Simulated scan of single mutants.
Amino acid sequence: MAISCFADLLNEAHSQPDPQRLLFVFTRAELPDNPTPEQRARFEQGEGGVLTPVLCVDKTLDELSDMAALVAESKETEIEWDIVFVAALAGSGPRPPSSDEAESHLQRMVESLKMGNIESFLALDRQGEVVSFQ
């Protein structure tokens, strides 16, 4: 199934044979250190920049309803973000992995994103639409 939005992601996660925990790393677009004039101009037009992880959380499928609820919950942190990267962690047996089990995976995900490795993750904007990078 091609995932094009948050609802598709939830449907796909619910259809998996093993219970899932979703990992979220929220990022903010920022100018790189010592930007060139071209980089600054593109960033001011809403393009380019670097995505810096600012917040991460893991959720079971029972804790998720829709993108609007996830955005509303993120607003409670008062941390601004632009793109959220998502990965799934499958459990074994009748339960999804615990938050403690997900922690090391979240940390690896953050480190991977800091290094610019985004291909393994689904990227969503604040409206829950899939974002592709070129």
Rank of each mutant, 00 (worst) to 15 (best):
M1N: 03
I3C: 04
I3Y: 07
I3N: 03
I3T: 13
I3A: 11
S4V: 08
C5W: 00
C5Y: 02
F6W: 09
D8M: 12
D8Q: 08
L10T: 05
L10M: 01
N11M: 12
N11T: 14
E12L: 12
A13Q: 08
A13R: 13
H14Q: 13
H14G: 01
S15F: 10
Q16S: 12
Q16T: 11
P17N: 07
P17F: 06
P17A: 10
D18E: 13
Q20C: 07
Q20G: 01
R21Q: 13
R21F: 01
L22I: 09
L23K: 14
L23F: 13
V25H: 11
F26I: 09
T27P: 01
A29I: 01
A29V: 07
E30L: 10
E30M: 10
L31W: 03
P32C: 03
P37D: 07
E38N: 08
E38G: 06
R40W: 03
R40H: 07
A41Y: 06
F43D: 05
F43L: 01
E44I: 01
E44F: 10
Q45G: 06
Q45M: 15
G46Q: 11
G48C: 04
G49Y: 00
V50A: 07
L51I: 10
L51V: 07
T52N: 08
T52Q: 15
P53M: 02
P53I: 11
V54Y: 08
L55F: 12
L55I: 02
V57P: 01
V57L: 13
K59V: 03
K59Q: 10
T60M: 05
T60R: 11
L61H: 11
L61I: 04
E63W: 04
L64S: 04
S65E: 13
M67F: 03
A68K: 10
A69D: 13
A69M: 14
A69R: 13
L70K: 00
V71G: 00
A72G: 13
A72L: 07
E73T: 14
E73D: 15
E73M: 13
E73Y: 12
S74Y: 01
T77I: 01
I79Y: 06
I79N: 09
W81L: 02
W81Y: 03
W81E: 06
I83P: 03
V84Y: 03
V84N: 06
V84Q: 09
V84C: 08
F85G: 04
F85Q: 04
V86N: 09
V86T: 13
A87P: 11
A88I: 08
A90C: 05
G91C: 11
S92R: 10
G93R: 03
G93N: 00
R95E: 11
D100I: 12
A102E: 08
S104M: 05
S104Y: 03
Q107E: 15
Q107G: 12
M109P: 07
M109T: 05
M109F: 08
V110T: 04
L113K: 04
K114A: 10
M115R: 15
G116P: 05
G116I: 07
N117Q: 04
N117L: 12
N117T: 08
S120Q: 14
S120I: 00
S120T: 12
L122C: 00
L122Q: 06
L122V: 06
A123C: 05
D125H: 07
R126W: 09
Q127R: 14
Q127K: 14
Q127Y: 14
E129F: 10
V130T: 12
V130F: 14
V131E: 00
S132Q: 13
Q134I: 07
Q134S: 15
